[in-house]
Design a binder for these strands. Structure first.
Lengths: 213, 213
DNA sequence: ATTACTATATTTCGAGTAT
DNA sequence: TATACTCGAAATATAGTAA
C-alpha cells in the first residue's frame, strides 16, 4: 500500500523528496508510523533512500518495481481471464540458469514425469527473454501453475517449482519456474526430446514458446 | 488482499464454495482470522455469501468488483505513465565518449536527420551518469530504440547505434547509444542547438535528461 | 468438517519527546 | 522541521474449543 502510494507520487520515475508526515497523510496514519513504514521498505530494499540535510530523496528500486508489477499482473489476470496462453520469445543461451538442475534431481524428476506423462530429455534449454516480452514474462511469473513440491535433502532445502505445459513450434514441452526465482529473465524449457538438436539451435537464436496457463 | 485472492480463485464469475481455512492457507493466516475477514468483507458488502450446510458459497458483489477495478486502475496508471520515459542525471564532461563522433560521419548524420526531423548541432554533450542513476542507465541500455544502421567504409566497420528521443529542461534532444558500447556510463546527447551554450554548462555541472522509450 | 466464541499472546499504533 | 525512540493503549492474531 505504501509502495503503491509512492509510485503514484512518482517515485518510480525519479527521486522525490518526501516526508514521513506527507506520506502518512495520504495513507491515513501518523508521521511515526509512516516514517517507520518507509524505513521498513528501505530495509526490504524495495526503495532506495538518499539522505539529505532535511529531506530524504526516495526512489523505488527495481525490486520494488517488480513487486508492484507482480501486483499489477495479479489484477490484469483477474480482469482478462480469456487468454489461455502466454507467448514468450527469447534467445537461446548456454549455461545453467538458476534452476537448470531440476531434472537431474530424482525427487523433482519423478514429479515431472507424473505431471507431464513423459520422461523429459536430460537437459534444459535456456532462453533469455527478449525485452519485448518482459511484460508477458512477468505475467507468467505471476500465474499459478501446477507445482512440484519442494523437499529437504542432505541438509539442503529444495523449494517449490511451478511447471507449465507449453509448445515450441507445435511440439509439446514444459517450462519450469522456481517459486523464489531471481527474475533473471531466463526461461528453463524441458521436452521429451532434445530441442536444441531437433531445431539445430545455437546460442543467440530466437525461439518462441507458447505457455499454457 | 483477501478480496483479490477471492477474485483469483474465481469468485468474480460465479459462486465458489470456499472454506475459511482454504483462504487462510493462501493468505498465510489462521482459519479463525480468514473466517473473520470473510465476514468483514460480507459486512462491507464487497462479497455475497450463501450459507450452506458445511461450506459457504461466495461471489464478489458489484461493489467488490468496483473496488478491485479501482485498484487495478491505480496500477495501470502507474505503469502506463511510468513506462514512457527514463530519467537520467549526471555531470557534464569533456572529451569524446566512445561514440561522440557519430554526427561527424555523413552515413550516420543522414540517418539521424531523417529520424529526428532536424539537423543536430555539430557537437555532442557528454554526461557522466551519477551513481544514483546507474540502475536507470542500465535500464535504458536494455531498451530497444530506433536504430541507426551500421556500415562498412574504408575497411572499417561502423556498428549499429540506438537513438532515443529525449528532453533537457523541456527542450527536445536525443541520446545516442552504440549497440556494442563499453557501458562506460557516458551519455551522448545531441540537440538541434548547442546545449552547453544555451544553459551555460561547464564541466561537472549536473544535468537531467528525460529519455522517451 | 466448518464456523465462530473466549482467553491469551502478539503486533501495531501514536502521543510525547529527544536528537 | 524532520526523524525516530519509548511506552502505554488499542487492535489483531492464534489456540482451544463449543456449536
Amino acid at each position: 500500500m505504501t509502495l503503491k502510494t509512492l509510485a503514484i507520487m512518482g517515485c518510480l520515475e525519479d527521486y522525490h523528496y518526501i516526508t514521513g508526515s506527507s506520506v502518512g497523510k495520504k495513507l491515513g496514519v501518523s508521521q511515526q508510523v509512516s516514517s517507520r513504514w518507509l524505513r521498513e521498505l528501505e530495509e526490504m530494499e524495495l526503495i532506495t533512500v538518499v539522505t539529505g540535510i532535511r529531506k530524504r530523496g526516495i526512489i523505488i528500486s527495481s525490486k520494488g518495481e517488480d513487486a508492484l508489477r507482480k501486483e499489477y499482473m495479479d489484477y490484469k489476470n483477474i480482469f482478462s481471464k480469456e487468454n489461455r496462453s502466454i507467448i514468450l520469445e527469447g534467445g537461446v543461451t548456454s549455461g545453467f540458469g538458476e534452476g537448470g538442475y531440476y531434472i537431474y534431481i530424482p525427487e523433482y524428476k519423478e514429479q515431472i514425469e507424473t505431471m507431464l506423462g513423459y520422461t523429459p530429455f536430460r537437459g534444459t534449454l535456456n532462453i533469455r527473454i527478449n525485452n519485448h516480452y518482459t511484460e508477458h514474462y512477468h505475467r507468467l511469473l505471476s500465474m499459478d501453475g501446477k507445482k512440484l513440491s519442494g523437499f529437504h535433502k542432505n541438509g539442503r532445502t529444495y523449494g517449490d517449482v511451478k511447471i507449465f505445459e507449453a509448445t515450441v513450434n507445435e511440439d509439446v514441452c514444459a517450462v519450469l519456474i522456481p517459486e523464489r526465482t531471481h527474475h533473471d529473465r531466463i526461461l528453463e524449457v524441458i521436452a521429451p526430446f532434445e530441442i536444441r538438436k531437433k531445431y539445430n539451435l545455437i546460442d543467440g537464436m530466437n525461439v518462441k514458446i507458447k505457455v499454457f496457463i
